[in-house]
Amino acid sequence: MRVVVAEDSVLLREGIARLLDDHGFDVVGQAGDADDLVRKVGAHKPDVAVVDIRMPPTNTDDGLRAALRIRDEHPQTGVLVLSAYVEEAYALELVAESASGLGYLLKDRVADVDGFVDAVRRVADGGSALDPEVVSRLVGRNRRDDPLAELTPREREVLELMAEGRTNAAIAERLVVTERAVEKHVTSIFGKLGLSPAPEDHRRVLAVLTFLRS
C-alpha cells in the first residue's frame, strides 16, 4: 500500500513514516506543508494520505482544507487526518457525504501502533476510522427526547464502534461475542433509531454519523 505522510514536525513525520514502513506500507512521499501535500498526492496517487490538520502555510486548518481537496480531486486516495485536539465539526465536515476512505484520529493514537496501522489500512481500503473521542462526543451530546436513551448499554457500545468505522468482525472481537450477535445488535440499533440498514461499513458509518450530528 502506498502512503504519503504530511506533517510539519519532522520528528513526528519521520516517526510515522518509519512506523508505516515497518508495517509493510510503501511511503512514497513526505510533505511538510499543505501545498506540498496536494502536489505529492497528485504526483504519486497513493492509496492513502496521512495528514496533520495544523500545517503551514497559515498554521491553522490548512491540512483539513488540503484533505477536502484531495477527497474531491482524488477520490481513490483515502485520507486519514490527524489532529492534536478533538473537533467533531472537522470530522463531520470531512465526512460530509461519504465516510468512504476517510479517517479522523487524535494524534495520540499514533502511539497505539497496531490500532493506528489498522486504521491506516482501513482507510486505504476505502473504509472509515473515526476517533473514539469524536464518536463519544457525538453520542454523549445532550439531546432533547434522546432516542439513544432507548439503546441498551451493549447496543451503545456497538453503535460507537460502528461509528468509528469498525467491521462486524472487529466489533465481535472487541466485545468478545460472535459476529452473529453483533449483527443482531446492529439490526436492533437501526430499528430503534429509525435508520434503514446499510450493508457496507462506510455507508453504515455515514448513516450513524448523520443520525448523530442531527
Binding site: 486548518d61 485536539y85 473537533e87 465539526a89
Partner: peptide
C-alpha cells in the same frame, strides 16, 4: 484558545 475559533 480553541483552535476551531481562530480557524473557522
Amino acid at each position: 484558545h480553541p483552535a476551531v475559533l481562530s480557524d473557522r
